[in-house]
Simulated scan of single mutants.
Amino acid sequence: MVDKKTSAKPVEESLDIKSKKSVFKRFKKLFLMLAFLLTIIISVAASVSTTLFLIKGSSTTQTKELESQEKIATLEARITQQDAILQQVAGNTAELKTYLRHSSANSLKNIMLNQEKNIQSFLVVLKASMRDLSVIVGRADDWQRDYDNQLNIAIQQSQKREQLLVLLKTGEPTK
């Protein structure tokens, strides 16, 4: 004998399973449609996001290329300006060297050196002339010795001034 309680359970369970299967059968088409629609939505979203990502990446690459081209153009313009300035300075250098050679300071130094040499030449000639004059004139030995010492001192001072002028002109001491 079979118990009614135990035999009723499998029948109820089988009814539950059957009712669930019938619900699945009813909504099976709906679930398939929703799954298909969800798959399409996910694939479209993935495609759109990938496309946007790639477009963004290419636009940033294009932007970077444009920026680098602008920087290169700016640098080339600067280099051209610097070359023009350098050529102008190089042209002015020769002119400035000419001015420096003929400047008043250098010219004045050269004039003063020539004057010292002329003074020394004059003093040497004067000394020789006084010696000749003392031979011609009698009793002139005393004044010739006095003036000869003074002429020697003047010649030595002129030679010192010449050395200082040479030092001033070249910046190097003479030997």
Rank of each mutant, 00 (worst) to 15 (best):
L133D: 00
A105R: 14
L167A: 04
T39L: 10
E116R: 11
E172M: 15
S104V: 11
I42N: 02
K25A: 12
K56G: 13
Q163F: 02
A46S: 12
A94H: 03
F122C: 08
T39W: 03
P10F: 13
Q159N: 05
K4C: 05
T50S: 08
T63Y: 04
Q144F: 13
K175W: 03
L30S: 14
F36E: 05
A84M: 15
S59A: 12
K4W: 10
M130W: 04
E172W: 05
L164Y: 05
D141R: 06
D3P: 02
L38N: 01
I42Q: 03
S68Q: 13
V166Y: 01
K160P: 00
L108P: 00
K56Q: 11
K18F: 11
D16Y: 11
V125Q: 09
F24G: 11
F24E: 15
S107K: 10
K18S: 07
D146C: 04
F36A: 15
N106V: 14
E12T: 03
A35G: 05
K109F: 10
V2W: 00
L54V: 09
S47M: 05
R139E: 06
E13H: 02
Q88S: 13
E162P: 03
L108V: 05
I111W: 00
D146W: 02
F122Q: 10
T63Q: 06
R26Y: 14
H102S: 02
M130T: 07
A90N: 08
A90K: 08
V166A: 03
E67D: 10
K5Y: 01
S47G: 09
A46G: 05
Q62K: 02
R139N: 13
R101K: 13
L167V: 01
K28R: 14
L38E: 08
K127Q: 03
E116F: 04
A73E: 15
E12I: 11
M1G: 05
L113G: 04
S103N: 14
K4V: 12
R139G: 02
I55F: 15
A90M: 03
R26P: 01
A128Q: 07
D83M: 15
V166F: 04
L164W: 03
D16T: 09
V125N: 09
K64Q: 14
D142H: 05
T63M: 03
K29W: 11
E116A: 11
V44P: 10
K28E: 15
I119F: 08
K4I: 11
K18W: 10
F36I: 14
F27R: 15
